[in-house]
């Protein structure tokens, strides 16, 4: 039994390896991008549109609404990052219904990579939102004494993000694997359904937490207001 898909290696050449995490990630990428490309190829601005376009519009506008609800006033600016986080995590959880599939998010490497992305994205959005000095100043708020604690907070929440997602996804996959060996009928189906729910919740939590961190970093020190900027029609 593998605790992580990293251990499922298809090909290796020294340090470079092609494991299940990377392969399933590529597969998910292909499905997501190809599906999006196929559907958006025939987008229409008319009132009557295809159900697939409706689905995509619901997903995209839902993500935009969630980002806005967190407090980010220019949600389309963060849509690319946060939306992809959500869709990737959710897709990797949904794909668990496919036999033989192991979610990339059940690998600590993947969740660490995602958490690192958040760790990098937060200061980037914060600096672009309120400037380098203002952002750096936020680390010594309310007093310079808080600087180490703020730095620890940055690291620890990144770690928490990675471990939380990994733990939930890995445990779900592990539970199903164990149950399949004990009671191969019916019960694993229920647990798979539960795992789907858990995966969706984790995707939501991961994305919302990242949005919250970005929102916190984007607020200026004095006003506490989130970044507001004009939204171009084609911005994503």
């Amino acid at each position: 039994m593998r605790l992580t898909p990293d251990a499922w290696i298809f090909w290796q050449y020294g340090f470079v390896k092609l494991n299940a995490t990377i392969v399933f990630t590529w597969a998910l990428m292909v499905v997501l991008v190809l599906g999006a490309a196929l559907i958006t190829r025939r987008l229409t601005a008319d009132h009557e549109r295809s159900r697939w376009q409706n689905l995509l519009e619901i997903v995209v506008t839902g993500i935009v609404t969630q980002i806005e609800d967190v407090g980010l006033k220019a949600p389309r600016r963060y849509l690319g990052f946060l939306g992809t986080l959500f869709l990737f995590v959710a897709a990797s959880a949904l794909a668990t219904v496919i036999p033989g599939y192991e979610p990339p998010t059940a690998s600590l490497s993947t969740t660490a990579a995602l958490a690192l992305c958040v760790l990098v994205a937060v200061p980037l959005f914060g600096i672009s939102g309120q400037g380098l000095l203002a952002y750096l100043k936020s680390y010594v708020q309310p007093t310079p004494v808080m600087l180490p604690f703020n730095l620890i907070s940055e690291v620890s929440r990144t770690l928490a993000l990675a471990v939380r997602l990994f733990g939930n996804m890995m445990s779900g996959a592990m539970i199903i694997a164990i149950l399949l060996s004990i009671t191969p009928f019916v019960f694993p189906v229920a647990m798979t359904a539960l795992g789907l729910l858990t995966g969706m919740v984790q995707a939501y939590i991961f994305t919302i937490l990242a949005a919250v961190y970005i929102a916190a970093a984007s607020r200026n020190a004095s006003g506490g207001k989130a970044l507001q900027e004009p939204i171009p029609a084609s911005a994503a």
Binding site: A36, L43, Q53, E57, V60, R76, L79, G83, A233
Partner: peptide, 10 residues
């Protein structure tokens, strides 16, 4: 392939 076309269409 997703956000931009969909947002443009919207």
């Amino acid at each position: 392939f997703l956000y931009q076309p969909v947002l443009d269409a919207i």
